[in-house]
């Protein structure tokens, strides 16, 4: 009888903890691992190191889907909903973007954004799959939390050369 009680209590605690954890990670923030070198040098700068960077993802931005240029976001891949990608927002609706390695210039449609990795050499980004609906965003990366020597905020960086040159062409 005693062990049964203990088991019952334990499972109740685990269930409550799960509910709270799920809610917090959905609504406020969570920790995610960054795999691959597509965002180096911001994340995983050393490709030889075996450990991944861990980052803090905040979810408050999902209340009204307001993002700015240079934000690093987590979004589910448009081609495979089970995959999550971390990329930087280069363009927002209404911007004109020149596609890399091509002379085409594209206007970003309403409700979409243009995402690119910080490492142009190895990145699956909007240059391959086009603008991404903002509705796929699952959070905004604010801090690196692991490894300890690189703990710090992720700055909002807008690569000037990507967008302004084309803006100049158009004005």
């Amino acid at each position: 009888m005693g062990t049964k009680n203990v088991l019952w209590n334990c499972s109740k605690k685990a269930f409550t903890f799960g509910l709270i954890g799920l809610t917090v990670s959905d609504r406020y923030g969570s920790i995610a691992a960054v795999r691959g070198s597509s965002m180096s040098p911001t994340f995983n700068p050393d490709t030889r190191s075996l450990t991944d960077d861990y980052v803090l993802v905040e979810k408050f931005c999902l209340k009204n889907y307001k993002f700015s240029h240079g934000d690093v976001i987590v979004f589910s891949s448009p081609t495979n909903h089970k995959e999550r990608h971390i990329k930087r927002i280069i363009g927002l609706p209404g911007d004109w973007i020149g596609i890399r390695h091509s002379s085409d210039v594209l206007r970003i449609p309403e409700g979409h954004c243009w995402v690119e990795g910080d490492n142009p050499a190895s990145s699956m980004d909007s240059n391959t799959f086009g603008p991404v609906p903002l509705g796929l965003a699952a959070g905004r990366v604010t801090h690196v939390v692991w490894p300890p020597q690189r703990i710090g905020a992720v700055e909002r960086r807008v690569p000037e050369e990507r967008i302004s040159s084309h803006l100049r062409d158009f004005h």
């Binding site: 009204n64 889907y65 449609p109 309403e110 409700g111 979409h112 609906p133 903002l134 509705g135 965003a137």
Partner: peptide, 8 residues
Amino acid sequence: VRSPENPR
């Protein structure tokens, strides 16, 4: 479906 034109 979350609208692709307006995520809100």
